[in-house]
Design a protein around this nucleic acid. Structure first.
Lengths: 175, 175, 175, 175
DNA sequence: TATGAATGAGACTTCATTCAT
DNA sequence: CATGAATGAAGTCTCATTCAT
C-alpha cells in the first residue's frame, strides 16, 4: 500500500462519510487526496472498488474492536464492554467518520453485513445464559438491535446524549 | 393535487425507497409515473422540491400513525401500541416502502426530524411515569431509540424476525 | 426524425468515414452537427447506437441501389449494371463518404453483412446461367469479390483509374 | 532487436490485428507482451512508432513473399504462384494475423502502400505480355485488384470458400 | 535496460433543468 | 396543463505518455 493509496482511502472515507457514496465524485476524492483522478482508477479499478476497499478496512477494524469482547470470560464484563463500545469511538473524529460511513453504506446500498457481528452475538448469548436470563438468544438480539438504534441516534440526532443513554443502559443491565 | 401529481409522488416514493434519492433520476421517475419529465419540474420546481413534498407526506402519515397512541390514556396500552406500531406497517408493501424511504433519507441527508416524534415521546414519558418507572424520560428515550434499531434491522437485515422481537419486547415491558 | 437528428447522422457519417468510428469522438460529432453532445445520447442511446443508425441507413441505400439490378431481366444488362454500380456513386461526394464508411466499418468491426448482397448474387447467378457460363455460381461470386477489390482500390489507392477498370471489365464480360 | 522488443512487436501485431490500432491500448500490449508499459515507449518512442515498426516488418515480409514470384520466368507459373499466394498464408495463424493487420491498417489509416506491390505488378505485366494477352497492364491490374477482393472476403466473410475460389481462378487463367 | 506509479487530457455518458410548442 | 427536444455541467473512466527508482 503506497502513500498515495492511503491518502486516497482516507479522503474517500471522510468524504463518503460526510456526503454519502453516490454524492461524492471521484474528482472530489482526488482533490482532497491531492492526487490525480486517474490514480484512483489505477489502484482501485473503479469507484465501487474504492468503496469495497474501504468496507474491507471496516471489517478489519470491526474485528479489532470486537476482539476484546469475545476474549472476555466474565459475563457482566462482556455486556458492559459491549455497551461501552460506542463510547470508545465517540471521542475520535476519524473513528466517528468511520462508523458513520459503515451505517451510511448500509442504508445507501442496503447491505447488512450480519456476519460481522456473529461472534459478538455468540459471546452475548453466552453471557446472558450464564447470568440466568431466561431467553439469552432473544436478550442478545435485543441488545444488538438496541445498539443499532443508539448508533443511529448518536450519528443523526444532533442533541443526542450518548453518555446518559450508556449510563442508563449499564444501570438497567446491572453491569 | 391532480392525478398526475399523485402518480409522480407515488413513482418518486417507490424509486427513492428502492434506490435512494441521489441514484434516482428524474427521468426514471417520469417514466414510472408515465408522465413527461418536464411535468415534474412544473409541479415541484426541482428535484429537491419533489423530495420535500414526499417528506411532507411522511410527516402527515406519521402524525396519523401516532395520533391513536397520543389519544390513549391507559399507560400499558400506550406502550403496547407504540411497540406494535411497526407490525401495523409490516404487511403493507406501500407502507414499507414509505418507511424505508424515511430512514434512507435520514441517512442520505442526515436530517433527523426529531419534532415528528416529540408528541409520542411525551405520551411515553407520561405512561412510564404512571407505571412508577423511576426514570420515565430515560425509559421513553430508550424505547424510542430501540424502535430505530428494530426498524433498521427490519428493513436491512434479510432474515430479521420482527414478530419474535415484538413479542419479546411486549413481554419485557409486561404490556 | 427531427432536423437535429439528421444533422447528427450527417455529421457522424462524414466523420466516421473520414477518421473511422473509434477515432471520432462524440464531442467532435456534436460540434460538426452544431448540437449539444448530450443530444446524441438522447436520440441514439450511445455511440454504438449512432453507428447502428448509420448502418441501418446504409442497408436501405444499398437496397435502393440494387433494386434496379434485381428487376432487370436481360442477362447482359444485369451484369453491365452491376459493374457500373460503383461509377454511379463516384461523382457524388456524399455517396463516396457513405460507401467509404461502409467499408471502414466492415474492417474496423469485422462485420461482413453478406445478407445485403444475396439478392444481387441470385440475379447474377441467373444472368450467368442464361448466358451459358459453365459455373454460374462461381462466376457470380468472383464478380462480387472483384467488386470488393475495386471498391478497396477506388477508396484507398490515390491514383486508381476507376473508369479504365470498369471499361476493361465490361469489355471482358462483353456487356 | 532484444527478446523483449520482439515480444512487444508480436503482442502488438496480434492485438492490432484482432481489435484495431485505435482500440488497442498500450497497456494491453504491455500485458500481453509481459513487459512494463514504459518499455514500449523506451523502445518505440510512442504508439505510432510501434505501429511503424510493425508496418516496416510487413514490408519486409511482403518482399519475402513476393521474391519467389519475381524471380520466376515461366509466365504461367508467375500467374499461378501469384494466385496461390494467399493459400500459403491461410494455414498459418500468425501469418493470417499479419495480413489481417496490413489490411486493417490500410483502412484505419487510409494508407495504401502501392510501392510494395510494384515489383509483382511488373512481373505480372510481363507474364501476361508473354502469354499474348492484348492488354497486359490492365490484366495485371485487374488480377491485383481481384486479390484485394479475395483477401477482403477471406478475412471478413465467415463462410468464404477460399480454396474453391482459388481453384476457379486458376482454371480461368489456365495456369 | 526495465519497472510501474503517476499524470492530465479527453473519452463516453448521465442528468437536472429549460423552453418552444 | 402537458410534452419532450434540447442543453451544459458534471460524472466515471481510459489512455498515451512521463519520470523517479
Amino acid at each position: 500500500m503506497t502513500e498515495k493509496q492511503e491518502k486516497i482511502l482516507a479522503a474517500a472515507l471522510s468524504l463518503f462519510a460526510e456526503e454519502g457514496y453516490r454524492s461524492t465524485s471521484t474528482s472530489k476524492v482526488a482533490k482532497r487526496a491531492e492526487v490525480s483522478e486517474g490514480l484512483i482508477f489505477r489502484h482501485f479499478g473503479n469507484k465501487d472498488g474504492l468503496l469495497e476497499a474501504i468496507i474491507q478496512l471496516g471489517e478489519e477494524q470491526a474485528k479489532l474492536l470486537f476482539a476484546d469482547i469475545i476474549m472476555t470470560t466474565e459475563p457482566k464484563e462482556v455486556i458492559r464492554k459491549f455497551i461501552e463500545i460506542i463510547t470508545k469511538t465517540s471521542q475520535n473524529k476519524e473513528a466517528i467518520a468511520f462508523w458513520k460511513l459503515q451505517f451510511k453504506i448500509k442504508w445507501e446500498l442496503e447491505i447488512y453485513g450480519k456476519h460481522k457481528t456473529e461472534a459478538v452475538e455468540q459471546a452475548l448469548v453466552k453471557a446472558f445464559s450464564e447470568l440466568r436470563y431466561l431467553q439469552p438468544e432473544k436478550e442478545a438480539n435485543l441488545l444488538l438491535t438496541l445498539m443499532d438504534g443508539i448508533a443511529t441516534r448518536f450519528i443523526l440526532q444532533e442533541n443526542f446524549d450518548l453518555d446518559e443513554t450508556i449510563e442508563f443502559l449499564k444501570q438497567k443491565y446491572k453491569v
